[in-house]
């Protein structure tokens, strides 16, 4: 779906590469969590995926279409992006206007817009707010509107560029639940950028970035085993994984590395009933 072939990008030639000879491949319908500390290059990767930045070296392609100055308008139709600050990406004066913005840009006829805006808002459960002004919405609700704006265009990929960073715990939950809900009803590739590993636990695969390079890639359970190494590059494994690693050192072995509390409690329950 998305392919990076030895991609480098530098904002300033004197300061080295923000992304350094990065090669990666993201499958269709895969949910990828792209993690790394602030400044690890993960947001630059996101902007290289939809042509907001063009690589200084190497090639990017999205569903077979190579990214270049001639193609980035087409690529942006395939790759939608939700940004970090909920306030600063809300263009419209009302929820409906904002969802329609992308459709207007692509020149959809009005009747089609009306249909798509309504169905996209229903998919993120924000239809009841369609006439609201943005200053009446919470951060989580604004991000859901941003998602609706992207869904309306029906892209193949949605990138969440630290979309949860500025939200409170309820907003974070809201965002993750919305994504999980969407994955149940439709096929789409998701690139979820975060520095919070407990959010990354929901992904199919985690790509860890450090200093502009891919540092590791694997299933969440695999990645979370590298607790000390991750902490060295400024990341923190989820609390449950930390607790499990303490148990592990003291002779408790579970079938699989627990990702959430429920997995841990369930497995412990099974284990203790055998004892």
């Amino acid at each position: 779906m998305i392919e990076f072939n030895k991609v480098s990008y530098s904002y300033d030639k004197n300061r080295g590469n923000a992304v350094d000879e990065l090669s990666l491949f993201i499958e269709q319908n895969e949910w990828i969590a792209l993690i790394g500390h602030n400044g690890s290059g993960k947001s630059t990767v996101a902007k290289l995926m939809n042509g907001l930045l063009l690589p200084t070296e190497g090639n990017v392609s999205v569903s077979g279409l190579p990214l270049s100055e001639d193609t980035y308008w087409d690529i942006r139709k395939k790759v939608g992006m939700v940004f970090q600050n909920p306030e600063n990406q809300f263009v419209g004066t009302t929820v409906m206007d904002d969802v329609a913005f992308g459709l207007e840009n692509l020149g959809f006829p009005r009747e089609e817009m009306v249909k798509r805006v309504a169905s996209a808002l229903k998919e993120v459960d924000m239809y009841a707010f369609k006439d609201q002004a943005p200053n009446r919405l919470s951060g989580g609700q604004k991000q859901r509107v941003a998602i609706a704006g992207i869904l309306a265009i029906m892209p193949e990929v949605i990138i969440f560029d630290e979309a949860s960073t500025m939200l409170d715990p309820n907003g974070k939950k809201e965002l993750l639940e919305t994504i999980k809900g969407l994955r149940k009803i439709k096929k789409m590739t998701i690139v979820y950028i975060t520095h919070d590993l407990s959010e990354a636990a929901y992904a199919d695969r985690i790509i860890v970035m450090n200093e502009g390079k891919q540092w590791m890639s694997g299933k969440p359970r695999e990645v979370f085993q590298y607790r000390d190494e991750l902490s060295e590059i400024g990341l923190e494994i989820p609390l449950i994984s930390s607790i499990y690693s303490g148990m592990n050192k003291h002779g408790v072995k579970l079938e699989k590395e627990p990702l959430h509390m429920k997995e841990l409690v369930d497995q412990l329950w099974k284990l203790s009933s055998k004892m």
């Binding site: 939809n50 907001l52 308008w73 942006r76 139709k77 939608g80 992006m81 940004f83 600050n85 306030e87 600063n88 990406q89 263009v91 409906m96 206007d97 329609a100 913005f101 992308g102 459709l103 207007e104 840009n105 692509l106 020149g107 959809f108 006829p109 009005r110 817009m113 009306v114 805006v117 704006g149 992207i150 265009i153």
Partner: peptide, 27 residues
């Protein structure tokens, strides 16, 4: 200015290219 920068990027990511080929939702 920071907001304007963010907003410009968000608009561009959503395919805004000025008046070019644009339709209107509000009528």
């Amino acid at each position: 200015f920071k907001r304007a920068e963010d907003l410009a990027m968000a608009m561009e990511a959503r395919g805004y290219r000025g008046d070019y080929g644009r339709t209107k939702f509000r009528e």
